[in-house]
Design a protein around this nucleic acid. Structure first.
Lengths: 228, 228
DNA sequence: CATTTGGATACTGTATCCAATTTGAGGCGG
DNA sequence: CCGCCTCAAATTGGATACAGTATCCAAATG
């Protein structure tokens, strides 16, 4: 007997949270759009209570913001200044994460890290430009794996609290395939520093990678604005 | 005119959030204690819905944690390892905050910063040891003001996400009045660097301050454990 | 006879739904 | 242009379903 009778091991609030999180990361909603609770309630076919709880939990990801007595909204687009501030914050956190991760390199870590690096390279080499989502998914995976390997829950949490914002930025800046090639090469260099068990070098390369990404983002942004 | 006619400018959920946050920061609850919703509902004389929302929002402060299908709990005490990781994270963030704040020094900032410095010094010089809360309140004010002055919402947010944890640590480590004197002196040096418009020096002094605080915390902790 | 063990029962608390109230925003007429 | 009205949405209160836990009672065992 004892059938697999654990189909409902999670709560509705958790499921709504996960679904909404995915949709927000994928850019399903327009920036600034209202997330009104009755509508979502019908959409997900649950009552308003779990929706409300999921939204409250999503607020700290930065993907959603709340105005008292007015409701929840998708986070608005970045301004140039915000983008700069975000990169400044990443510039503080990510080299520190890379440094700690570099002190704890394991073969499993290296193996897992290789996957998003190869993905990014392969995508950037293919002639057909698929969805930007695939690029960014590989990029996110790379940075998230390093954050995890840092073995510091507080630093990782601080980075995670930036994670949603980083994603906002990713949706905002359309990555070109030339950019992806640069990024793939920089990822690879960081990887090599990990292999060489050189944490300080990894941290420096990460710093350089973020600075480059910042410059690419700024120039891309200008291009986009010029085209519109 | 425009009287202060904002008596009910906030929702119940906001008020509950603020109250609970204050109580958690003050150590009103025991670490690990269950925060059950019906009880809090009676206590605050509101229904369960705003309680639930406030708890969901409190989760990201680190003062409260949630276990699926089991409810919300006050964050447990620190282990030695966690304390170390926390200080490592502060060591990454706070010098960066001090650096940015140092680039944006204003007379108002300096004036506001002087208050918690003087408070801490006065408290540490008085013979009568009052509640530790007053020490930590001054300490928190000092660090929070600098975080705000950094003018980077993302870095500030990352620090704030550590803030609750820092407070957990503060409640855990009982500050001696000798420690308070050291801290006051270090705060003062950082202040002087701000006055001298030397951001890099401020960042270095902040790094040193956190490292010292870490050492003091570790030795204090050992003393406490030895006494019990 | 004392102790232990099995199982039913009461109770507590989470998760959820739904209904009632309050608030904010936009349209309409003065 | 300004105030009133209407409607949609947020907010809140309370009721219900459900699960897990603790408690109690009695039968079985040494």
């Amino acid at each position: 007997m004892a059938r697999d009778d654990a189909p409902e091991r999670t709560t509705h609030a958790d499921k709504v949270y996960t679904l909404l999180f995915g949709q927000l990361m994928n850019g399903t909603f327009d920036p600034g759009a209202a997330l009104n609770i009755p509508t979502l309630s019908r959409e997900f076919e649950v009552s308003q209570t779990p929706i409300r709880e999921a939204l409250a939990r999503l607020e700290h990801t930065g993907l959603v913001h709340r105005e008292a007595l007015r409701g929840y909204f998708v986070a608005p687009l970045f301004s140039e200044v915000e983008l700069d501030k975000l990169m400044e914050a990443r510039l503080v956190l990510e080299p520190a994460l890379a440094l700690e991760a570099g002190r704890r390199v394991t073969p499993e870590f290296l193996a897992k890290l290789l996957v998003p690096i190869d993905d990014l390279l392969r995508l950037s080499e293919s002639q057909v430009v698929r969805s930007f989502r695939e690029y960014w998914s590989a990029d996110e995976e790379f940075h998230t794996l390093i954050a995890k390997q840092s073995a510091n829950p507080f630093l990782e949490g601080a980075y995670r609290s930036l994670g949603g914002q980083v994603q906002r930025f990713r949706l905002f800046v359309k990555l070109g395939s030339a950019d992806a090639r640069f990024a793939a090469a920089e990822h690879r260099k960081i990887y090599d520093a990990f292999v060489a068990r050189a944490p300080e070098a990894a941290a420096d390369l990460m710093r350089h990678h973020i600075e480059s990404a910042r410059l690419r983002a700024l120039s891309d942004r200008k291009t986009i604005l010029a085209n519109e």
